[in-house]
Design a protein around this nucleic acid. Structure first.
Length: 108
DNA sequence: TGGTTGACGGTGG
DNA sequence: TCCACCGCCAACC
């Protein structure tokens, strides 16, 4: 299904669907892109595909870690804080529980 | 064509 | 609670 779309394209697609005030993890994004084990690859794609269309700052690592942001983790955290998001172990757990409420259906 | 790197994830010590 | 090791996947040299 939807094999006509490349993995990196799917990743950008999923990340672009992350609503404001909501975050997701690399693993979750990878899973929605069709590769639950490609969290690493997702990070690679994000690093190279830094676009204004893609809120890459809303993608964080699991365990309450930001992961990275070209060495600007502080800036990433500040952007999330501006949206009312405080990155913590609990944050990941909370958003992972509800995800985007049906956004998954559109992502497929 | 093959090996290494990297914005990760999870488990173990 | 923090650090280290192993496993997975895609891009780059």
């Amino acid at each position: 299904m939807t094999a006509s779309v490349d993995f990196p394209t799917r990743v950008l697609w999923v990340v672009r669907r992350i609503p404001t005030g909501r975050v997701s993890t690399y693993g979750d994004v990878a899973a929605m892109a069709g590769r639950p084990r490609a969290a690493r690859a997702v990070g690679n794609i994000m690093r190279k595909c830094q676009r204004a269309d893609v809120p890459c700052h809303r993608v964080i690592a699991a365990g309450g870690r930001l992961g990275g942001y070209g060495g600007r983790e502080a800036a990433k955290r500040a952007m999330l804080a501006a949206e009312g998001i405080v990155v913590s172990r609990n944050t990941v757990r909370e958003f992972r529980r509800v995800r985007w409420r049906g956004a998954r259906s559109s992502a497929r």
